[in-house]
Amino acid sequence: MKVPILTYHSSNIAGNDYDSNNHVALAEDLRTIARLGLRIVSVTEVVDALLGEVPQSSVENAVALTCDDGSFFDWHDMEHPHYGPQRGFAGILRDHTEQTGRRAQMTSFVIVSPDARAVLDVTCMAGRDWWRDDWWREAAREGVIAIENHSWDHNHATLPRTVQHEQRKGTFSTIDNRADADAEIRAAADWLDAHLAPQRSTLFAYPYGEWNDYLVREYLPRHAHEHRQRAAFTGEPHPVEANTDRWLIPRYVCGHHWKTPGELESLLREMRG
């Protein structure tokens, strides 16, 4: 078992070429994946194989795709104020499926708090109300983009207040006690379950890719019956293997761990031996 999980951010648009635009990168990377004869599976399938619920052979010669934060660009085609028309991630995935006959799917780990997203829309994007959640239910129902948990408010540095009790913001390593972990992880899962029913949140991605011993060794494993998450994902550049810790599942991040189509192809070829 050696499955790379590739991660994108649909808000990463600083131009219209591969290294400045994750939409351009995703479309090109899908072509690379197809040319190499690799399948696209969901991260849920990868977790199922890791936990022994399905044979590991079910994810052989496969990659999984995720994206973080849950902005409108995950789902909608948009007119960017500086860089013009942008095909949303969902449209890129549908185009690939139609062109190749191979189903492409992705999991979006979303920031859940509506109030936090309203602020982040202004502080981190263009302030055009591009971080709403009214597309999440439709996405969950269609299945091209699954919706999962990226915390309540990301403990984001640009928010006036977060649920971290001491206001140590801009990192997830300070979520190191039961109250703060419940407020970030369990509350987000509760909201998703209530608003996307009958879909249920079972997967969590650490904001900033950061974790700590309390979350990995105490909170996530020992309180799973309460927060209901089955696995957690980092931003470490490794494939998922048979001995991977379910609370430290690695992911490669576009723009950080590969920057060109050639670098991605080399990464994927290495994993195939």
Rank of each mutant, 00 (worst) to 15 (best):
A231F: 11
V144H: 13
T202Q: 14
H82E: 14
D176L: 04
G15E: 01
L26T: 03
E142F: 13
L51M: 08
V216E: 11
H223A: 07
C124T: 12
E148P: 13
F204I: 10
N149T: 11
W258M: 15
I40N: 08
L215T: 11
H23P: 07
S10P: 07
Q167V: 10
S42Y: 07
E138L: 08
D115G: 09
T171I: 04
L93K: 05
W211Y: 12
R222Y: 00
F72C: 00
F233V: 11
W131T: 13
W211S: 15
S151K: 00
F233C: 06
V110R: 02
A27V: 03
E98N: 07
N177K: 10
T123N: 10
D95G: 00
T107Y: 13
A197V: 11
R103I: 06
Y208P: 00
E98H: 05
G209S: 04
S20P: 05
D129N: 14
A34Q: 12
D77P: 06
L50E: 02
I92M: 07
Y8F: 10
L6W: 08
S71L: 14
A140V: 01
H80C: 06
R246W: 11
R251M: 11
H225V: 12
W247Q: 06
L36E: 10
D115E: 13
L267R: 05
G209D: 07
R35I: 00
R102P: 09
E148I: 14
D69F: 02
Q167T: 11
R168H: 14
V144S: 05
